[in-house]
Design a protein around this nucleic acid. Structure first.
Lengths: 150, 150
DNA sequence: AATTTTAGTTGACTTTGTGAACTGATGCTT
DNA sequence: AAGCATCAGTTCACAAAGTCAACTAAAATT
């Protein structure tokens, strides 16, 4: 991915987006977390151009979100999500919830996020970190702590 | 923003990304939620080209994330976040947490997300929707419910 | 051994983004 | 009221990134 002008800024949202903020990267991550492992699998699922997929997969490997590993008993390889990639589940859950609420599809959801043990649907809720009490999003505020460098 | 090939797909993550998934849109949303309201404010904060900012703001207004409103007692106007935009707070919180964990900045965070009542830091935690019990992200799975149209 | 599948690469073309200069209002100062 | 600064864009030349289709070569299948 291109170097972004905000890449070295001290904002964690900006830093995340400098890694993940292009057209396809989060879709590739979504597919990887759904079990897609190979080049043709991503290409058929997403219908993006093959040379761009090559670049995006390379980028995700460089950023440590995927590993390129030999498939057991074969000389081919597969792309496996790392913990860094799996930790994007929360991002995907919040995107999914927002999409369900604000861009609903009459046919209902295609992707479903469930607890493997109980089989129940999973959602995200903001919490106070210290004691775990749930609070209202309306009571939450984003603030800038200090001036940016440039 | 460009029409994306996955735009009408039945996945809520894909639909969200078709609205939000370009280089700058979520950064503009972040700024809007931090209180930036005017063209020059966004431009100085983000250092993106002015004609692109024009397009992105127009896009966000068309998508119902911002409104363009006259400033009281002036003939100038400002861009105000709608509820649809404010509901992206959860997305920004999860991006922020991921960025803090996986792309840490030695100088510490620039953006801070706090509960206005208690002043405490806010985080996101996956929950079982029905009873509110907290579960481990490792126990969560993404699944495709049905085949895509194309 | 021949065919198909996989995982790319290559190159022409199109789209999108950048940077700097320009415009024409509005608002501020004296 | 005149002059200058700020605001919110637009315009244009250029650079970067994405798309599409065809091609390649190795691996797997029949």
């Amino acid at each position: 991915m291109t170097k972004r002008s905000y890449e070295q800024l001290a904002c964690p949202i900006a830093r995340s987006l400098s890694v993940l903020g292009d057209q396809w990267t989060l879709m590739i991550v979504r597919d990887a977390l759904m079990g897609v492992r190979r080049f043709e699998g991503f290409q058929k699922s997403l219908c993006l151009s093959r040379n761009l997929l090559t670049r995006r997969l390379r980028h995700l490997v460089e950023e440590g979100l995927l590993t390129k590993e030999k498939i057991h008993g074969s000389r081919r390889f597969e792309y496996c999500p790392t913990q860094k990639c799996k930790d994007l589940l929360g991002v995907l859950v919040t995107f999914s919830e927002w999409g369900e609420q604000w861009c609903p599809d009459p046919e209902g959801p295609l992707v479903d996020i469930r607890h493997t043990v109980s089989g129940k649907a999973v959602g995200m809720r903001p919490l106070l970190l210290e004691n775990g009490t749930e609070i209202s999003p309306a009571e939450v505020e984003l603030a800038q702590l200090r001036e940016k460098d440039s």
